[in-house]
Every structure is written in C-alpha cells, then in structure tokens.
C-alpha cells in the first residue's frame, strides 16, 4: 500500500451496523474510497484486516459490553483521530435511553439470571464515556452525502464540515410547509441537521433520529412550543427516543425555563 495514503480503520461496536453498511451503500464511490485511502480494517467488508497504527478510526455503535470497552481503548491508542460515527457512537443510540435501574430491570426481564460466558454486559453508553473523541458525525444512520463530504475533506487535509444547525434550516431550504404551524409535533427545531429534512419532505414530523442539535436554542424553543400549545412532556419523551445519554444536558435549559 502507498505510504502517503491515510490509514483508516472502520470499527463496529453494538448497533444495527447501519453506519458501516452506509459506507458500502456508496456503491459508485466504493472502489474509489478503497483506492484513495488505505483501509486497514473494515470487518464487514474484508477478512485481511490489519490492527496497527491508524490516522483515522471511524467507530460506529455504542459500548454495551466490557470487551467493547477494551477494544475501544485499544483503538484510541492506535489512532491519531477518533470519529464517533453515527448516533449510537455519538449519544449511545436508542439503546441508551434507559436509566441505570431501568436498564438492569429490563436486562433481567430478557436474559434472566444467566451469566454470560463470553463477555459481561454494561449499560449502553456513547464512546466518549470511555475515550476522548475528536469528531462527531451523528445520524441514524449517518447520511451518505454527509459521509462523502467528510471523507473527501479529510483526504484533502481540510477540516470536516460541522452540522450545528437544526433540521429546520434545511427544511426551509426545501420549501416545506412548517408542520408545527399545522399543529403537528415535529422535532425539527431541536434535532441536528444532516438528513436533508427527509421526514418533513414526506409530510411527516421529524422523529429526532440525528439526536439533539448543538446549535439549537432550547430556551426560545421552549417558549415557542409552549405558545403553540404543544405538550412539552410528550415532546421530551419523543426527543428521548434518539438522544441517548445526551438528552439530560440538552434539556437542562428546558428545565430551567419550566420552573
């Protein structure tokens, strides 16, 4: 392999494998991707994987077993840049919704008291609960365009584009009628952009699957939603579906306002 090429590893922890699959979904670009970079490890696609020093590690999935904690720490040691690739790695995924006690109860309901011989389960957490993360690329799954923009920029040594704005921004560009104005509880104002406002494009309310938007203004959102007569508690509950462990910090502002 060419020494000048960036060494990249793609790793899957627990999740639906959709973000790794998304890379294979770049069908027309896939061979170019493999030629442009030195893909050292990508278990879903190849068997001849090398686990050595890396320039970039893309980690998808959340951490749910002790083995994964070890694997993740090993990746961090080997990689110059670690990217939380997708919603699960960024916020813990839908499986990180439960509090500690609720998780234990539900785990017991499904697996009973059986002791697992292959590894020990832990409550689902995003990867930054265990290691330092350099970049976040949320999405359930990460958008194809989002990934290709990121990949080409990184290959050229340029900083990747960030998506701090909420879904509403793209939704306006797409000239959709605002669903909130129609009384439909859309999560667009609170949710990170990157999907291209896909649900409102189909006349459906945003489900929140990109997780909380970094640049959203929760205080102003709180008053706006309240003024329009939405049930704040129901919105919080819906927002929690895809916000994992990052929901609490996001709604701190919300909480302050409601007092």
């Amino acid at each position: 392999m060419n020494k000048d090429k960036l060494k990249i590893g793609i790793y899957e922890l627990t999740g639906c494998a959709g973000c790794a699959l998304l890379i294979t979904d770049c069908e027309m670009e896939l061979i170019d991707i493999f030629n442009a970079a030195d893909i050292q490890s990508f278990l879903m696609v190849k068997s001849d994987n090398i686990e050595g020093e890396l320039d970039i590690a893309l980690v998808e999935g959340s951490v749910t077993t002790e083995n994964e904690i070890e694997e993740l720490k090993d990746i961090r040691e080997r990689a110059k840049v670690v990217v939380a690739f997708g919603l699960c790695a960024s916020v813990g995924g839908i499986q990180a919704r439960f509090g500690n006690k609720e998780w234990k109860e539900n785990y017991q309901k499904i697996y009973g008291d059986m002791e697992m011989t292959h590894t020990k389960p832990v409550q689902s957490k995003p990867i930054d609960a265990y290691i330092d993360v350099d970049l976040y690329l949320p999405g359930c799954p990460v958008g194809k365009e989002q990934f290709l923009h990121f990949f080409t920029r990184v290959l050229k040594g340029a900083p990747p584009e960030k998506y701090p704005r909420p879904v509403c921004v793209t939704c306006k560009y797409n000239e959709n009628d605002c669903l909130l104005n129609k009384g439909i509880p859309c999560l667009g104002p609170l949710t990170a952009d990157g999907c291209g406002s896909i649900c409102p494009n189909h006349n459906l309310p945003c489900t929140g699957c990109w997780g909380p938007a970094e640049g959203a203004n929760p205080t102003s959102e709180y008053f706006l939603l309240k003024e329009k007569g939405f049930d704040i508690e129901a919105i919080k509950k819906r927002m929690s579906n895809y916000s994992g462990t990052k929901l609490a910090e996001f709604f701190e502002q919300f909480k302050k306002e409601s007092k």
């Binding site: 499986q95 309901k109 590894t119 579906n241």
Partner: peptide, 27 residues
C-alpha cells in the same frame, strides 16, 4: 452487546414504535 430493543418502545406510541423497532438492523 445487548440492546433490549423489545423493551425500548414500551410506553411509546405505535408511531414511535414503527420508527424505532426497525433500528434493530440496518440491512
């Protein structure tokens, strides 16, 4: 690892369940 998917949507609306439960698997 365990994701407890079958328990995640309990207490949610049918519409939320339809959005969430396919997240079990991408392919």
């Amino acid at each position: 690892g365990p994701r407890l998917i079958e328990k995640l949507t309990i207490g949610r609306t049918p519409e939320e369940d339809v959005s969430m439960s396919p997240r079990i698997c991408a392919i």
